[in-house]
Nucleic acid binder design. Sequence first.
DNA 1: ATGAAAGCGCTAACAA
DNA 2: TTGTTAGCGCTTTCAT
Lengths: 348, 348
Amino acid sequence: MTHLRVTIREVAAKAGVSHQTVSRVINESERVNPETRARVQAAIAELGFQPNAIARSMARGSTRTLACISPNLTDYTYASIIEGAETEARRHGYFLISASAPDAAAFTVLVEQLIASQRTEGLLALNPYIDERYQHLPAGVPTVIVGAQARDERSHSVSLDETNAGRMATQYLLSMGHRRIALITGPLEEDCSQDRQAGYQQALQEAGVDFDPTLVMEGDWSATSGHQAVECLLEDGADFSAIFAQNDRIAVGAIRALREAGLRVPEQVSVVGFDDMPLASYFDPPLTTVRQDIFYIGSEAARLLIQAIEQPGRQTQHVHLPVELIERGSTAKANPEKGGAREVQATR
Amino acid sequence: MTHLRVTIREVAAKAGVSHQTVSRVINESERVNPETRARVQAAIAELGFQPNAIARSMARGSTRTLACISPNLTDYTYASIIEGAETEARRHGYFLISASAPDAAAFTVLVEQLIASQRTEGLLALNPYIDERYQHLPAGVPTVIVGAQARDERSHSVSLDETNAGRMATQYLLSMGHRRIALITGPLEEDCSQDRQAGYQQALQEAGVDFDPTLVMEGDWSATSGHQAVECLLEDGADFSAIFAQNDRIAVGAIRALREAGLRVPEQVSVVGFDDMPLASYFDPPLTTVRQDIFYIGSEAARLLIQAIEQPGRQTQHVHLPVELIERGSTAKANPEKGGAREVQATR
DNA sequence: ATGAAAGCGCTAACAA
DNA sequence: TTGTTAGCGCTTTCAT
């Protein structure tokens, strides 16, 4: 265990050159005599020298570190985006500090500590419109908004084509003959909930089906909220033969509630989820869902951010990623005699 | 948008003091005249000065940044540990750079870039015994091994009491009258798989039940592996009335395979999982499982690491965290007439 | 192709 | 209590 860390100067002394020549070698400059380079490299190996990253950042004025602030790190969607971003960042020689900010206040503090302190050179803001945090996005620092479209002109963004995704899921149910399609959304503060709902309404309209607001329930992404939403729907005596749940967890909760009410999925009610989370194919029944390539969202976001850092003049970019419908066992054709309505009314 | 970042010297000029006084103010030194401090603070506010974190790291020789290397960032278990660690780190004024290393080679590179470059002051190594990566743990740098016990004397560790957890799950099934209990493990390279199995065998022995190696299958934590394991078991005509799956995903796959073979859970076969992952209570049937407080594992690991950094002389510590059995619907009493054996043999 | 000098923005030691 | 002087370990001019 080396106690005092070896510096460039010790290497220089050992190799009999100036520390500047060592710097040239570690920076792979061309302008070094092959012999000298070999001597220096030998010295580096012998002493186990590792350039000090902080000193380099200091001298270069660039830290090659990105920040990623997310509501949490455990939701599968966020975690995948972060993993994608981290991998891509590293591919470009950057590191990623990811931190979770449950609320806007925590977000503000983090921006200060990470961005204003110049510890990082750019920011990945995951879902910044869930609360007031977007008002504290840093100015003058490259920023990519992930999971929503930027509302200002300074920020880049990477998001799904949410409206189209909502439309696609709804069209699929319509194509199965369903006419009474309930919708369970995420929190309406979030753009994606709104956009998915817009797509839902759009698809209904295109199919000439009237939009019925009593068929729409707001959830909070949790399975529990899906469960409750279906309970409410049933209590209100709502008539529906399909549900579009805006994420897979809501779908799972909804299916559970349907079962508890004695309704069979997909025979009596079809359910479409959103995300294609890891166990979606192992649910009972396997979940029909909208798949998003979340890992790619993350890597694309990192790519954009690094581009913005390295080419400061660049125009802001807004990337929309496509989605795909995965057909599994939680959906079936509507019962034609009944015109798509449920046969059994819950007894509760 | 300030173009040239404000430095301590500009603040000093504005406040009419030396830059060192400004340094004292931002470091909350006592030795500053209240009036002077007020003047400096006014100047700081007016100029929007933010100390440069890199320069501080440079001058102090300490980066207040930790590294966390994990096989991936998306597994719920890892993500939770990371979130716990990140939160705790920040509580102590540290940042956490988390990176994923799918294999030992990637791990080695990361250790070099993060640790040897002195960018970070300590390492959280999640599950380092899944491959050869533990051989590349850095020397002379505070390290906490998470999810396994340290195999050397230099590293601290935070892990579950895995043996006891395995024992507890098995004892529970035994107490329900099951005698033929199949085990589906994680990869046997990982300590936790081994330890959970040791606990399983221990419980059997204590209950006077013979250990039957044909009832043990090795999985890879995936639902698919649980599915396959049960298929093998059934093909081999194995006789069992309960399964202890070493994680919840394996359990889900196992339940699916059981169903496909026409077996009812829990009436004919009971299944116990491990982790209590978020949707465990929403599975069908709701999963009986061993709960670990993973968030706490992370925060404890970070706490230990920071302690090791700040008090270098300290002895290595090894923390074992308790687990808890959560009883839900995937387990039931064994059929007494049959002595716990399945009634129905799969027809395949 | 190599070296010398200067400085990145701050903190730490010492002096006043 | 405050200011002055040196660096931290490296990169970047600019000479040579």
